[in-house]
Design a protein around this nucleic acid. Sequence first.
DNA 1: TCTGGGGTCCTAGGACCC
DNA 2: TCTGGGGTCCTAGGACCC
Length: 420
Amino acid sequence: MVGLIDCNNFYASCERVFQPSLNGKAIVVLSNNDGCVIARSVEAKLLGIPMGEPAFKLKELIESNQVAVFSSNYVLYGDMSHRVMTTIGAFVPEMEVYSIDEAFLFFDGFENINLNDLGGNLVRTVIRNTGLPVSLGIAPTKTLAKVANKFAKKYKNYKGVCVIDNEEKREKALKLTKIGDVWGIGRQYSKKLEYYSVNTAWDFTQRSKAWVRQQMGVVGERTWLELRGVSCIETESPKSKKTICTSRSFGEKLTTIEPVSEAVANFAAACAEKLRAEKSTAAMVNVFIHTNPFAPNQPQYYNQITLKLPVSSNDSTELIECAIRGLKAIFKEGYKYKKAGVIVSEITPERPLQADLFDTRDRSKYKKAMLAMDKLNASYGRQKVKIAAQGFDRKWKLKNEKLSPCYSTNLKDIFVVKAD
DNA sequence: TCTGGGGTCCTAGGACCC
DNA sequence: TCTGGGGTCCTAGGACCC
């Protein structure tokens, strides 16, 4: 049996843990730049605030209902996520952290244990340890566990846990699940399936395998099998990423290359940092810029370029240099730029330094510098030491006017650095 | 009238997820 | 005025090889 546990309204719940006066109140959390609604408390959902709605369209609704609004605070959410995952890890021998707020649990060897009781205990423990409410669905496959999780969340008397462990429950659950709510079936496919009168997960499982294959390819076929109780989505072992992306929309439109360069330098540095954190290097650097697609009356420009590094690297200075070179090649005057980003790819594990006869760069020296920089930033706070090209102007900076404090991590600022 | 067969690699685009 | 960011996988088509 497989479990899927996730936090209810994760970001909104994180904010509420540290501001209990908001219990029972409507809360929304906004995306970067205070753009769209990306998390809502139950009360906010009841007010009819849709997911993904631009904040400026909700101004009145927010004011008249005194909705608490937060900018997203990923440092806080990341730390809370870690606490949740650690608590869960103590209950099961194997788990797969699937996203910031959810994990699959594997109950191999639990044949003689009542999973409903165990699940209830787990759910209560997470709430006690972290203050965050969670829901758990348990079933024979990942896709069915997702279905069970929805029921655990929706119906109060499940007390946070729903187990699908026989045919009768499976059939009932699938008949009550709209096709678009199935994991792996998004907007395009649900539209198509509804056209063919497939309205529920159950309808879907009653179609032939060949039909599903023809309409939706192997991916759809897997979902079909999973819903019928045949497990075929494998457990992902943690492996290094294939691409790493850092991109942002700017707080204000940028027209000249200088602030855009500064932003791109910061994105490249962030990618380098992420690479170093997972002990990887990248061989390709992609830079993209574009204007605001939501302003069709303004001249639009989108461009991107991919450059190869001479040697696979995770050195901030090298990635910045490369990214800026790319930016210079694609930047055009006369546009109002809204967003830029850097994507690194062809990622391989960091290898011990190998001298290259024709390499003009003193890599061991730069490596030491990066190590020192990471250590200082870990001890004194992010961005305390950076590369000059990252600049101080921050004209490109995000709008986040409603940012909460990093309640659970700000002690870092007073840590003392250990000198080597 | 009638123009092979079999493979790999790369890329762009489309679908999905959170 | 104002619309997020970061990923994955699959497929079709083109280039190229023998």
